[in-house]
Design a protein around this nucleic acid. Structure first.
Length: 811
DNA sequence: GGTTAGGGTTCG
């Protein structure tokens, strides 16, 4: 049913008001109190929509009591008459067989009772006073909209009143006929950011494909930028409504037409399907979710065929190459009338030294200088023409993706340290040439995008305080993880091994140039430094990827294992057993809900839930549910449909969270854990957040839980002609493997991606000689070993940049 | 009710 409906543009999550009381159809009469009455029935007949005036309609239908399926005859049924726009919405949204609820109705004597043998009264539903809710017979279809009611009745509801939610059909890209106007779904294989056309509008150009394997060019003209598709990378999914099919040069193309709308989705499955749109009235239902997930699955099966992303981290940039860069803007400055300088970073270090670009310090937005260490992580990007114009609106701190950057090598004369001779030095600078060829452009990424989350973690790892981490290095749990303290890079720790050169343009300041060393040389070098090595991957562990996934506490710096399901299940069953009656906190409302999708044959379970009065008052009752008395399996099943589920148990003192070895929060397939040592968990009402979406951080903070972060931890053995070396992959694991740890925790595709990366670097079959050579930046640091003695450890702090010239060299 | 663009690197 197409009811992911919005009422007057408000947010979804509509619920049947709790003060309504259901009235059986056979008890309806003129003497009944109808003010708070709710009637529920299955639509057994639906008449045509009759237009009586412009925007005024009448529709008749028959609903039948739906609660007595075992009685085959004499089921109470009643005529309903719907008026106005509500009638039109009902006509569009409700089909025979659907179950509806209605309130705010009046009754009148049925003139046809003797003929149709139905109820002696009719229900009259006017647009002004009545509400109709569509009730879904299978709660699994709309579990998100289920709400608890005080009378323990379960409803899955979405409001129909004033819903403008027609059913959409989508044309496969292989079936497009010139001249028609269609709705389509597609996977982006090429796109340009919107650019100013010579007419009145901005123009977006994109190419999409689907299972039919047709590749269709689309041109979108819209005056407002926010109406354009929000495409971040190839592989994103777009859904467009009302596009015209045209022939241009004998090729089918799509152009937007009157009533056009577009929504985009991440092409990577991440557990939740979030429509990207600035429209407040997006229509998005279960069918859409299914289509998006189907395309995501298809994309993952087409990985090899689709030229997806060209994203590269700074550490992997190859001179002369074109690439996309996801980064944070630190500072910017105009260079001249057609060119601006952007200073950006992504948490990794480019092996090449950047050309210093001279700008007037008074023109710089953001810091004019950085510490020497920080400077070595910052890239200089020159953007020209239209991009220089666009850059005027960028603010330092923003997260950007820059498309089709080019790494330009620049040779310049510099004086050596002694200052007497000049020598040729190769620098690098990134150019974003003018124009939009190859999708050249800049996009500001929203804070909540998975790529920005990953970027933030990489940057946070780079800048976090090492003292914080070092003080806890003896933690026994930490030492169990390969007996080593993973270290972080920070300004103190990075004392780079440099071949020091004085830039002739800089004020005598020294620039960092990482020297490449062999593994054997590295072992002889002093710790506490960054080194550049070229090596092959000889082996890695753990071989079972799920063992690489850990939980990390940023407060006490402990690394913890993810508890297995057996352990978590036992915590749930213990909590059930030990549960006692308790008085509810004053802010909590209590109710019950039925579990969706009971396993075949099992009776449907009703669960006791508590929800926040405040959230309910804000119309966000479904955003956070506290549940009691469930098994792990039931909790997971329930979590597929609700935003946030917090399992609790009742004790004499009131509601309490479960043992923190179990996840404290479930959302879809995601589970969130808290640190046992650092949490002071209490079940309490969440402070009002206004319009801010409840996320795990807000919930954890409110409950006094120190949120644990998913991290990946691996041990790699590197080899070159001189030696082998064990190194850890931790703080840069996400950048190195190109996935987020959180996705690895829930997505098979992310896991496959890691597996493929490792397999490509270290194939199970084949000789070592055939393995790619990797350019890597390593940090060395001192830490306490298993026996308490100090020893040197190494950690990878770059992504694997493969050296094509060395592919076939034998070690 | 549909002009604009209709992908295809590189001055800097």
């Amino acid at each position: 049913m197409p009811f992911h409906a919005l009422v007057d543009g408000a947010s979804p999550g509509v619920q049947v008001p709790l003060h309504l009381t259901r009235i059986p159809i056979n008890l309806i009469s003129t003497s009944s109190d109808l003010a708070n009455a709710l009637v529920k029935g299955k639509v057994v007949r639906k008449g045509p929509l009759v237009s009586v005036a412009p925007n005024d309609f009448i529709l008749k239908a028959v609903i039948q009591e739906d609660s007595q399926p075992h009685i085959s005859t004499q089921i109470p049924a009643i005529n309903i008459v719907v008026f106005g726009e509500l009638a039109r919405d009902f006509s569009q949204c409700v089909s025979p067989g659907d179950v509806v609820m209605a309130s705010g109705f009046t009754v009148s004597k049925s003139p046809t009772a003797s003929k149709d043998k139905l109820h002696h009264f009719n229900l009259l539903l006017s647009e002004k006073d009545a509400n109709i809710y569509c009730f879904c017979q299978n709660p699994s279809i709309y579990p998100r909209s289920a709400v608890a009611r005080k009378d323990s009745c379960t409803v899955s509801a979405q409001i129909v009143n004033r819903t403008k939610a027609p059913r959409y059909t989508y044309t496969p890209l292989g079936d497009l006929k010139a001249g028609s106007v269609v709705n389509v779904y597609g996977v982006v294989v090429f796109f340009k950011q919107p650019f100013k056309s010579h007419g009145t509008d901005f123009c977006s150009s994109l190419k999409i494909t689907d299972k039919s394997n047709h590749s269709i060019g689309c041109t979108i003209f819209c005056e407002k930028l926010e109406e354009h598709p929000k495409i971040f990378q190839n592989g994103d999914i777009v859904r467009m409504h009302r596009v015209k099919v045209q022939l241009f040069n004998n090729t089918i193309t799509l152009v937007n037409t009157f009533g056009f709308s577009v929504v985009t989705f991440d092409g990577k499955p991440s557990g939740s399907v979030e429509p990207r749109t600035s429209s407040r009235t997006v229509h998005f239902d279960e069918e859409d979710r299914r289509r998006v997930e189907e395309l995501q699955t298809w994309i993952s099966s087409q990985n090899i065929l689709l030229p997806l992303t060209n994203s590269v981290s700074l550490s992997a940039v190859q001179p002369k190459a074109y690439f996309d860069l996801t980064c944070q803007l630190l500072a910017k400055a105009p260079v001249d009338s057609t060119c601006s300088l952007l200073r950006v970073w992504d948490g990794t270090r480019c092996p090449n030294t950047f050309l210093k670009v001279d700008v007037d310090p008074n023109d710089v937005e953001g810091p004019t200088t950085f510490s020497r260490e920080k400077e070595s992580f910052i890239a200089n990007v020159l953007v020209y023409d239209n991009h220089s114009e666009f850059a005027k609106q960028l603010k330092p701190g923003a997260f950007l993706r820059i498309y089709n950057l080019r790494a330009i090598p620049v040779t310049s004369k510099e004086c050596s340290v002694t200052g007497s001779q000049s020598e040729e030095v190769e620098h690098i600078v990134f150019h974003l040439h003018g124009g939009t060829s190859y999708g050249r452009g800049i996009r500001v990424l929203p804070e909540n995008s998975p790529d920005v989350q990953m970027l933030k973690r990489a940057i946070a790892f780079l800048t976090e305080d090492v003292g914080n981490c070092a003080s806890e290095l003896n933690d026994s749990e930490l030492l169990e993880v390969w007996s080593t303290p993973p270290e972080s890079l920070d300004d103190e720790a990075v004392e780079c091994s440099t071949s020091k050169k004085c830039s002739s343009t800089a004020e005598g300041s020294c620039r960092l140039q990482l020297q490449r060393v062999t593994l054997s040389e590295l072992k002889q070098s002093p710790p506490g430094q960054a080194y550049h090595v070229r090596a092959q991957l000889r082996s890695y562990e753990p071989s079972k990827l799920h063992q690489a996934l850990k939980l990390f506490c940023s407060k006490c710096s402990s690394i913890q294992e993810i508890p297995d399901d057996e352990r978590v299940a036992s915590i749930f069953s213990e909590a059930c057993k030990n549960s006692e009656d308790c008085s509810l906190p004053p802010w909590a409302l209590s109710g019950s809900i039925k579990l969706p999708l009971p396993p075949s044959g099992a009776p449907q379970r009703t669960l006791r839930v508590h929800l926040s009065t405040q959230l309910k008052a804000e119309g966000k009752a479904n955003e956070l549910l506290f549940i009691t008395g469930t098994t792990l399996e039931e909790t997971c099943r329930l979590a597929t449909g609700y935003k946030n589920i917090v399992p609790v148990t009742s004790s004499k003192s009131g509601l309490v969270l479960m043992d923190l070895s179990a996840p404290f929060l479930f959302r879809g397939p995601r589970r969130f854990y808290g640190c046992k040592q650092c949490s002071e968990a209490t079940v309490r009402e969440l402070p009002s957040r206004g319009d801010k979406l409840l996320d795990e951080k807000i919930i954890a903070e409110a409950l006094g839980v120190q949120l644990l972060q998913f991290v990946l931890l691996m041990k790699l053995q590197l080899q070159d002609a001189t030696d082998t070396l064990d190194v850890f992959l931790w703080k840069h694991a996400e950048v190195f493997l190109g996935v987020s740890a959180e996705d690895v925790a829930i997505s098979q595709r992310a896991q496959n991606c890691v597996h493929e990366t490792l397999e490509s670097l270290c194939p199970t079959e084949g000789t070592l000689g055939l393995r790619p050579w990797l350019d890597l930046t390593l940090m060395s640091y001192r830490g306490e070993g298993e026996e308490g003695q100090m020893q040197t450890y190494y950690q990878i702090c770059s992504s694997p940049s493969q050296d094509p010239d060395l592919q076939s060299q034998d070690a």
